[in-house]
Design a protein around this nucleic acid. Sequence first.
DNA 1: TTGAAAGCGGTACCAG
DNA 2: CTGGTACCGCTTTCAA
Lengths: 340, 340
Amino acid sequence: MKSESITIKDIANILGLSYSTVARSIKDSYQISEETKEIVRKCAKEHNYRPNLMAQTLKGKKSRCIGLLLSQIPNNFFAEVTGGIESVAFSKDNMVIIAQNYESYKTEKRNLENLIARSIDGLLISLSSETEDLSHFQKLINVGFPVVFFDRVPESIKAHKVIADNFLGSYEATLHLIKKGYKKIAHITSAPNLSITKERLEGYLKAITDSGIPLNRKFIKYCMHGGFIYEEIEKAIKELFSLNNPPDALLAASDRLTIGSFKLINKLRIPIPDQLGLIGFSNFSSPELFHPPLTTVRQDAFEMGKVATELLFQLIESKKPIVDFQTKKIATELCIRNSC
Amino acid sequence: MKSESITIKDIANILGLSYSTVARSIKDSYQISEETKEIVRKCAKEHNYRPNLMAQTLKGKKSRCIGLLLSQIPNNFFAEVTGGIESVAFSKDNMVIIAQNYESYKTEKRNLENLIARSIDGLLISLSSETEDLSHFQKLINVGFPVVFFDRVPESIKAHKVIADNFLGSYEATLHLIKKGYKKIAHITSAPNLSITKERLEGYLKAITDSGIPLNRKFIKYCMHGGFIYEEIEKAIKELFSLNNPPDALLAASDRLTIGSFKLINKLRIPIPDQLGLIGFSNFSSPELFHPPLTTVRQDAFEMGKVATELLFQLIESKKPIVDFQTKKIATELCIRNSC
DNA sequence: TTGAAAGCGGTACCAG
DNA sequence: CTGGTACCGCTTTCAA
């Protein structure tokens, strides 16, 4: 069972014209008389003709389809990113095939291959937290395949990248905690190999150094799966607050980490913001409804998706290979509420 | 610039075999000797051969790609649904093309056409709140195209459908409010033409009738865009609480409506649960962090996606046209917290 | 057991 | 301005 669709040949037969005439009419070629074109167009409309994308793609045309490989959609940040991506993809009459890596290197690699096998014209990627080996991505880029990394980007690969201003976001957040009088600031973050982890850590460290506050390495906790596994957050938080000299503030580096930490701190009955100041990187839709309303570092996910996709189409539409790659930074926003 | 990939012909040339022999070897045809197949397989692996899906599809094969048309991803319910869908799609080596309708009939129709033009094998649909005219969907079904509706399903179309047990979910929630002593229960819901709206309204009404509580029609508020437009929630809530005899409880029929109402009630400084009991249909990830922790009707979105996709593949893989359509119900869960 | 060739729906080049 | 045709990569029927 398939929806029978009309082809160029059908129209040619109906009208008693040659295939090429019909094809050219439909493409509105200048070499066809207006009358003929009119007749063909009318017939095409009537029979609801739609060009077969598979055939076009096979013939070397673009598939007008881009791939999106990210960690997972049930995460407000990524959900919002897709909006920005689609807004520009659709304006160019492209569709988006989304694949998720669920923070697994294996799944990421497998879905990358699936995506490529679909003749997509380009690919937007945010790395899984497990990914260390980048060779499959490097190969793609080596053959000139259009790729743009966003959010979690690889250091060692030369390509277009779009990231949040993680350093500044983290720096400002930490500084804000310090201004509020907190002095023992912990940082719970994702896998240390991720770009976002490094940048956010640096901002945190810089703020502490700049303020002349003593740095306690025990206050830095890594969650290898970015909090995808709840137990790793639990372990980190427990360790943090079992310390002889526990922290009086916490900067959480991601959505999942923020929510997870928040829950656990509530469970431990540590009052926020009195005994603990909390700031989290989060694109949660309504942090003001939390108790207390949560101070967050917000990323403009939509904008990030938009910018990344614009860069991607630049690559896709470029005639000559691009060698001058750029990294764009999207500003973050510190949304001050009552959790610190 | 495209990643040059090896074809069957290339392999045939390398090995000095005919195209068909190579093609058959790769498909592990019984008519080819084991030795030949072994040689071909080895060569294919070495050169990292991947069949061209476009060519296969053009030749009448399945595209191994299904479409998903829903209202919008930045909504925890739909984000979770995609997980269930992918879990079964991927197990069948299919990919998912996601398109959003953003609660607009026009966008829905346009994206439907885009999707169909991509030779997808089947389609999962959750209707936009604006959609009244279903003829484009009906046409698809008439030609035997595999379609499964989920969540927001059309009444008038005969097709497989998967829905939450909206009636029961709503009934139980309302009953719970009544048990807690609330007597003037309002209901804020989506567009009246949506299946979920009707079913949830019925559950609400039944609970009120069953309990012998007077029904006040003024307590029922429709938001035509399901709260996609914040102002419509604002208007509804304001009207509700400007009533001479305002409600003492509220049942919100969707994620967006729940959050929006919650915010507005906070703004109006109406204490929950003392002056107002609140329950919302919501798949929000952490309603326990709200103030107060929110009592919700939760839907098993993952399961819904899974079941819908299983039905879809039944259609896709079926040899003969299916006429016996079924509607599956997924149980909802009342998660009692402190907002009522 | 293997090979040759037609054709899926379009595109584009070459003639006329 | 219009028609004929080779070809994109793969599947499949018919021959050998």
